[in-house]
């Protein structure tokens, strides 16, 4: 359905949109493109849509809205735009205009199931973008509201919610059920000894678009989560149980995480190491390492080193016996 939209905020970007030469360097590193692979999932494609809407070439339909609201704000696109077009700023303004016009939006925005939510508020201070607020629902009742323009889809709240009330649309391989599935899928294949959870924001840029899997067999598998803060402890336990000899969580260095998710990961992994001891699993089999954007060579080195250590340790006895 087409709605009448006042593109008050988006219109000011027309000149910037014209500066985009559509070279496509923005999508090389876009997680959305890697998940869906249509041109309409590329940042370049989304800018084209915004341009089309403000110049009247395409109608603002629900389909356009669904695409515009799919973005994790990793900013790999703007950081790699040689024309310096502020891609995510433009998308944020387009989002605001579309929400003002009354569109229903979902995309990568988190959703809260009010039946499950106890309004404990754990998620509220966690969000660096102030996208979560406790509001009155009438009659002494409260609820958590999501600011759909400000939510960046990083999913930290999702990993922290004690009642599992927060969710995100599936399809980009970042929700818990999808991640569990990936863990099992990867460890089923070949002879994988190490599972690496890599942060999209810093590490993903080193990875490839084309598929070379058939050629290069590696003793490790990599799963790209959004922020390392999303790596819930149960995922790591799942990896050990599914046959991994070791798990590495690769996140941004302390000051570099946009969402402060890495601090949370660090705390969480310290606790988890204690639990591992109780399960008779050597805590050295779990490693947390920091990598800045572009440090894929360092990541490779650390992976190789860890694989050697794991080969010395051998498989986990507790699971071998079973």
């Amino acid at each position: 359905m087409v709605k009448k939209v006042d593109f008050k905020r988006s219109k000011k970007w027309e000149n910037e949109l014209d500066k985009c030469i559509r070279c496509g360097y923005c999508y090389e590193l876009c997680p959305l493109f890697k998940s869906y692979s249509w041109e309409s999932d590329t940042p370049r494609g989304k800018l084209l849509m915004v341009h089309g809407m403000i110049t009247g070439k395409i109608a603002p339909t629900q389909e356009v809205v669904d695409k515009i609201f799919q973005c994790f704000y990793c900013k790999n696109c703007s950081d790699n735009c040689s024309a310096g077009v502020p891609v995510t700023d433009i998308l944020t303004d387009a989002r605001a205009d579309l929400i003002n016009a009354g569109f229903e939006v979902q995309g990568t925005i988190v959703q809260i199931d009010e039946d499950l939510c106890s309004v404990c508020g754990v998620c509220v201070p966690l969000c660096k973008y102030d996208a979560l607020k406790i509001v009155d629902k009438g009659k002494d009742k409260k609820k958590i509201e999501v600011d759909k323009v400000e939510c960046r889809g990083c999913g930290l709240c999702l990993a922290a919610c004690p009642s599992g009330a927060i969710s995100q649309k599936e399809g980009c391989n970042v929700t818990l059920p999808e991640l569990h599935e990936s863990v099992k899928e990867i460890l089923k294949k070949d002879d994988k000894k190490l599972l690496v959870f890599a942060c999209n924001y810093s590490i993903f840029p080193g990875m490839q678009l084309s598929e070379t899997e058939t050629l290069v067999k590696t003793p490790y598998g990599i799963i790209v989560t959004m922020c390392s803060g999303r790596v819930a402890p149960e995922l790591i336990l799942d990896a050990f149980e599914s046959g991994a000899w070791g798990v590495m969580v690769a996140g941004c260095p302390p000051e570099e995480c946009d969402h402060d998710g890495n601090y949370k990961t660090r705390r969480r992994l310290i606790l988890l190491k204690n639990i591992l001891k109780e399960l008779n699993i050597n805590p050295k089999r779990l490693k947390l390492d920091w990598f800045s954007t572009g440090e894929s060579a360092k990541l490779q080195q650390e992976i190789n080193k860890f694989v050697k250590e794991l080969e010395n340790m051998g498989p986990i006895e507790a699971y071998v016996k079973r």
Binding site: W38, S40, G45, L48, M49, G52, I58, E63, V64, K67
Partner: peptide, 9 residues
């Protein structure tokens, strides 16, 4: 879908 078609235009 017109959105996709537009992106490939």
């Amino acid at each position: 879908n017109p959105v996709d078609l537009y992106a490939y235009s």
